[in-house]
Write a protein that binds this DNA or RNA. Structure first.
Length: 558
RNA sequence: UGGGGUAUGGGGUAAUUGGCAGCCCAGCGGAUUCUGGUUCCGUUAGUCUAGGUUCGAGUCCUAGUACCCCAGCCA
């Protein structure tokens, strides 16, 4: 704790290694995902750390697909992983596979056999597992543990040659069945699997386990700092043991662990996300409701917002859960600068200007206003928006009997129609049932452009669309990526009831909206929030994040 | 149950290695504003517990507590 508490403990460690010339001042890291799913927001943290540290010290970072389990891995995932890393703005020095090293790994396995540090075990998985003992209970040695190196070498070669059935034999490291660290109780190095591998095809029928592949791959590549997540902490002694018993071509890399990123209201478990996809609960890995990088990208999250967030939350060894609001604040900060504005109405209420002029033919005059696309960024220019005496406003923006602190339109009150005119409500039109069908108002011709020539103030500026000119759009509203808390979220208990949870957390609804003009890719529908245009369905917009929830705050107060 | 790891406001994270507990998110208050947005200013609130060393402890010592990880031929 004492020294680990220092600012960024990983960079401190790297700096120390540089000062002591442990690796001759060289820094090399790697990002090693297993291609068994799409990258999600949690991976963004690891990517930011791995690539960021290499960059900070003038080193390199490679992408290594950790493909030692052919049963779960696919090229589709490889392609997505490569694309997503690029999208985040990182460029791997190389894209490699753990399977590229299968031959070297095998030769090193023979080396361990020859030197008496590995043996072939003929027992099945259940037996081996039972013999491993438990916490506080020492393990039992396998009856095959003391075979001669010659016999082991013969058996290993025959394993590799495909002479034995799946599950019938494994290669194990010969370490210590009494070791207090369970990882050191003769871990399995190779298992027999007659599966097709997406990279090596049918060349191999024995596949290395994670522990037997990972550190060795690091060493082969010349990795200096192998940064991984906290759950591998107890693997570090094994990581070092393997490397310490092999004829390495260079320096021995060191493993450093940090806490993974967890977010509230967010499922970050490839297994669960895969279930959502497989069961058709979402449309795919890139469904905008998914916390995958592709889902977030479709939602309009800027890559820089994600990486800035990951950088700023820091790297520690403390298990923690960051709030989704913190991430969203980074998204809003970026989008406030870049997103164009549009006025939009989701629950239209008619607003009629009773003193609006008509032309010779009796039709209402149409007036065009240039309205800034983004007041935060003048270079975004203006758009031309049609205005007439027949408008739609948001139903929430009118109240016949205004509650306290209601600033918008109500009888007798004057507000600004953004960029157009000041209008004063003169009355309402109701149907037989007493429902309001329209609001009537008069406009002040002297306030053209929304100015107030005599300097009088109005408490509210409202958005509007011309009934005649408005563009139809659909907006998918979800307050949050996963808006509802799910079972066990607070306590960190496992999420067992996936079906229930998925349906609840992925709730979203689509609404129609009327928009002032056709918007661009990512837009702020004023007061509704930031939305991204769906590339597949023009005029369908996914909510990125909302604005600050000002209404809720007012109601809470009152 | 044995081993390992971690504890700082509501959430996250710093503290020159023993010297004014700072920053971000959230909250609250105010100013500005043609978005109840943005921006700006102010503000509430914290060192897991109990002892000890010291002029001085988040930091060092002792004892405890809580949480996380490890018993896949997954990674």
């Amino acid at each position: 704790m004492t020294q680990a508490a220092a600012g960024d403990f990983i960079r401190d460690a790297v700096r120390r290694d540089n000062e002591q010339q442990t690796y001759g001042g060289r820094v090399q890291t790697r990002f090693p995902p297993e291609p068994n799913g799409y990258l999600h927001i949690g991976h963004a943290k690891a990517i930011t750390v791995d690539f960021g540290i290499a960059a900070d010290f003038g080193g390199i970072c490679m992408l290594r697909l950790d493909d030692t389990n052919p049963d779960t891995e696919q090229v589709e995932y490889v392609d997505a992983i490569v694309a997503d890393i690029e999208w985040l703005g990182f460029h791997p020095a190389a894209v490699v596979h753990a399977s590229d090293y299968f031959q070297t790994l095998y030769e090193w396995a023979e080396h361990l056999v020859t030197t008496g540090f590995a043996y072939v075990d003929d027992q099945d998985g259940e037996t081996i597992s039972a013999q491993r003992g438990g916490f506080g209970k020492p393990g039992l040695e396998s009856p095959y543990r003391n075979r001669t190196p010659e016999e082991n070498l013969d058996l290993l070669r025959r394993m590799r040659a495909g002479e034995f059935a799946e599950g019938s034999r494994v290669l194990r490291a010969k370490i210590d069945m009494q070791h207090e660290n369970m990882q050191m109780r003769d871990p399995v190095m190779y298992r027999i699997r007659y599966s097709h591998h997406f990279n090596t095809g049918d060349e191999w029928c024995i596949y290395p386990t994670y522990d037997w592949a990972h550190g060795q791959s690091d060493a082969i590549e010349g990795v200096t700092h192998s940064i991984c997540t906290l759950e591998f902490d107890s693997h570090r002694p094994l990581y070092d043991w393997y490397l310490g018993h092999l004829p390495l071509p260079g320096d021995q890399p060191r493993q450093i662990e940090f806490a993974r990123l967890e977010l509230t209201h967010t499922v970050t478990s490839k297994r669960r996300l895969k279930t959502l996809v497989d069961e058709g609960i979402v449309d795919g890995w890139d469904d905008p409701r998914m916390p995958t990088l592709q889902g977030l990208r479709r939602r309009g999250y800027p890559a820089s917002a994600i990486t800035d967030f990951c950088r700023d939350i820091g790297t520690t060894r403390t298990n923690s859960r960051q709030s989704i609001e913190a991430l969203e604040s980074y998204v809003r900060r970026e989008l406030n600068r870049t997103a164009q504005r549009r006025m939009a109405v989701t629950r239209p209420l008619r607003l009629v200007l009773t003193n609006w002029p008509t032309d010779e033919g009796g039709a209402p005059v149409v007036e065009w206003f240039d309205i800034a696309n983004n007041p935060e960024n003048e270079t975004d220019g203006v758009r031309s928006v049609a205005f007439t005496g027949d408008l739609w406003i948001e139903a929430d923006d009118f109240a016949e009997v205004p509650p306290p602190k209601f600033f918008r339109l109500s009888p007798g009150r004057e507000v600004r129609l953004r960029g157009a005119y000041l209008v004063t409500c003169t009355g309402v039109v109701k149907d037989e049932a007493g429902q309001i069908v329209a609001v009537e108002a008069t406009y002040d011709p002297a306030s053209r452009g929304g100015t107030s020539p005599d300097g009088r103030k109005v408490k509210s500026t409202m958005h509007w669309v011309s009934a005649q000119h408005a563009v139809d759009a659909t907006v998918a509203l979800y307050e949050r990526l996963f808006s509802a808390p799910y079972p066990g979220e607070r306590t960190g208990e496992p999420l067992d009831d996936l079906d229930h949870a998925s349906r609840e957390v992925l709730h979203a609804k689509a609404e129609t909206a009327l928009v002032d003009t056709a918007p661009g890719e990512v837009v702020q529908f004023e007061r509704l929030g930031y939305f991204a245009l769906d590339p597949d369905q023009p005029m369908l917009f996914h909510r990125t994040v909302g604005l600050r929830d000002e209404w809720a705050a007012i109601q809470r107060r009152g």
